[in-house]
Simulated assay, not measured.
Amino acid sequence: MKSILSVGMDVHKNSFSLCAYDGYTGEIVSESTFASDVKLVIKFIEALKSRYENDVEIKCGYEAGCLGYSLYKLLTARGVDCVILAPTTMQVSAKNKMVKNDRMDALNIAKNLASGSYKTVYIPDEEDVEIKEYIRMIHDFKKELKRVKQEICAFVLRHG
Rank of each mutant, 00 (worst) to 15 (best):
I152T: 10
K95G: 04
E63D: 11
G68P: 00
S3H: 12
T89M: 09
Y62H: 04
I109D: 01
T33D: 09
E130F: 02
L18V: 09
G26C: 08
I42H: 03
V56F: 06
I4H: 13
V99N: 15
C153P: 02
V156P: 01
C60P: 04
Y52N: 08
E127P: 00
E53N: 14
I42T: 03
N54C: 05
S30K: 15
E57P: 00
T33Y: 01
P124T: 06
N14T: 11
I58Y: 10
V56R: 03
F44V: 03
L107N: 09
G79V: 05
D22M: 03
S115R: 09
I109A: 01
K146N: 13
R147D: 08
V7F: 06
S93R: 13
K132I: 00
K73T: 07
A114W: 00
D37P: 01
G65L: 02
S32Q: 14
L40A: 10
S6H: 02
R51L: 13
F44D: 00
D128F: 07
L18G: 09
V121D: 06
I58V: 14
L75W: 04
E144A: 15
A77S: 13
K95R: 14
V92W: 04
K39R: 14
G68L: 05
V38E: 13
L18F: 09
C19G: 01
K39G: 10
I42L: 10
L157D: 11
I131M: 13
I84T: 07
K100H: 05
S36E: 00
I152C: 11
T120R: 06
G61M: 04
Y62I: 02
K97S: 05
E144L: 14
V56W: 03
V156T: 11
D105S: 15
M98W: 07
V11L: 15
M137N: 13
G116P: 04
Y21G: 06
E133P: 03
A20M: 07
N14H: 11
N14P: 00
A20D: 05
R147C: 03
L67N: 10
M104L: 11
L113C: 08
E133C: 10
T88G: 15
K49V: 07
H139F: 04
S36G: 03
S3I: 06
E46K: 14
A20Q: 07
H12S: 15
V11A: 15
E63Y: 08
Q150F: 05
D55H: 15
Y52V: 07
A114P: 00
E53P: 00
C153V: 08
Y62E: 02
G26R: 10
S32F: 03
K142V: 01
K43S: 13
N108C: 09
A110D: 01
E127K: 15
